Simulated assay, not measured.
Amino acid sequence: MITLAELQTQFKTLRQKTRDGEIFQSLGEAMAENIRGLSPQPVTDVSLPTDGELALTRMQAYSQLLETKAQDGEHAAALDVEPIADDTLALVVAQLANPLPKYRDTGAFFFLSDIIQNQLMTEAQMRWVMSYLTTDEQLFDHIFEGNNAAIYRRSFSVLVISLLLFTHRTKTPFLSEAQLDHVIDQVALYAALERDARGFIGTNGWAHTFTHIGNAVNEILLMPNLMRADKLFVLASMLSGYRELQQPLVMGETNRIVAVALQSAKTHEVYQDYVLLTLKLWRKDLVTRQPPASEGRWHQLYNRTRFFQTILLQERPTVPDAIFKYVSETKDYLT
């Protein structure tokens, strides 16, 4: 079986070829060839955080401090409050892997979202969090296995990555060029590799990783000083991952991915051409591949059908004419 390190090397090579103008039409197919042979490995034990109550107590104490010092209508970032302590920050970030939503979702994620948006972390702390969340151990934890509890770590890592990218883009550019390059490489590969399509999971709440992937990819596509080739590469990774997915996306994830793809298509002709090319490639799959004979292949087919149908349901001005025309003419082939 191919290793994560080998996939990282292959995707970095594809990114460089995209930059050099050596590859465009075959980019999606090249990505698919690298990931198509992957099959779920047996699930192994997932290491989960055990100090959720301590983290929750620390989060509540810091939030109470903000409330106590707040003035009427005063913005939290203007308060005379020390940035969160490094040890507390590390404790909170670790809870993104917690299956229990009171520690992970309404706990760590809500708390991190609040302190990031209100600029209550130092630039050094934001760099540390980004570096931690984009490590292989965090972003690709148990990713080659069947559905497992590591999905929370992966999914909420990419969600917080999207918040940090938004802050870097709109408020405080805290990442160096090399650091941003690393984030792009990791997010692109993650978008192509993730196979756990679960949305809301029993009593554990949201995983929703494909919505979170859309958020992170969208932030990269909005980076004003990033070269088009890098944006194209990340867009292609997201669409390649969607193409190969053999689990159903039924909780709004397709809406987010379509919105990101169409927004990019509206910003420049090169992205429009690539999205259209991808749709044609999916259409070609119906002719060149064997008819679906497994549950996974049927999910793959109907995910694509939902993609086409979602495009048709968009407000007409949001869809480039060429894409709308093609989807309208070929919609019956996917139903």
Rank of each mutant, 00 (worst) to 15 (best):
D185K: 13
Q314L: 00
Y152S: 13
T254H: 06
A216R: 03
P292G: 05
A197F: 03
N303E: 03
S47L: 14
I35W: 07
L175C: 04
A77P: 00
T335K: 14
A70G: 13
T18R: 06
L277P: 05
S240G: 09
N148C: 06
A293P: 02
R198C: 13
T170H: 13
M59Q: 05
L239E: 02
P224W: 14
P320A: 01
Y302E: 04
R283Y: 10
G214D: 09
Y62N: 10
F166L: 09
I220F: 08
H168K: 12
N98D: 15
E244Y: 00
F308W: 05
T267Q: 10
R243I: 07
T122A: 02
F111L: 11
S113I: 03
I184V: 13
Q16L: 12
P99S: 07
D285A: 04
L100W: 06
L221T: 11
W206K: 10
T44K: 14
L89Q: 03
Q290P: 01
E269L: 04
L100S: 05
Q309N: 15
A293C: 07
L159F: 12
V260I: 10
H208Q: 01
W282I: 01
R198E: 07
I35L: 15
L38Q: 09
S240D: 13
P224M: 13
D51T: 13
F174L: 12
G52W: 09
S328R: 08
D105G: 01
G202A: 01
N98V: 12
G107A: 02
L120W: 06
P291K: 03
R256A: 13
T68N: 06
Q314A: 07
V92F: 12
V81R: 11
A76G: 00
G199Y: 03
L27K: 15
R36F: 08
P83H: 06
F111D: 06
H182K: 12
A5K: 15
L7G: 09
G146I: 11
L112A: 09
V92E: 07
D141N: 14
A94P: 02
L159C: 08
P49C: 05
P101S: 08
N303C: 04
D141L: 08
A261T: 05
D321A: 01
P40K: 08
A216P: 05
S26N: 12
L245Y: 03
F324N: 01
Q300V: 09
R256E: 04
Q60Y: 03
M121G: 10
T305Y: 13
A76R: 00
A261E: 00
L249F: 05
A178L: 09
L91D: 02
A192P: 15
P292K: 14
R243Y: 08
W128C: 07
D273H: 10
R15F: 07
M223D: 10
S157C: 03
E137I: 11
L164V: 02
H208P: 01
N218G: 12
S131H: 10
Y326F: 11
R256V: 15
E315Q: 04
A5F: 08
T122N: 00
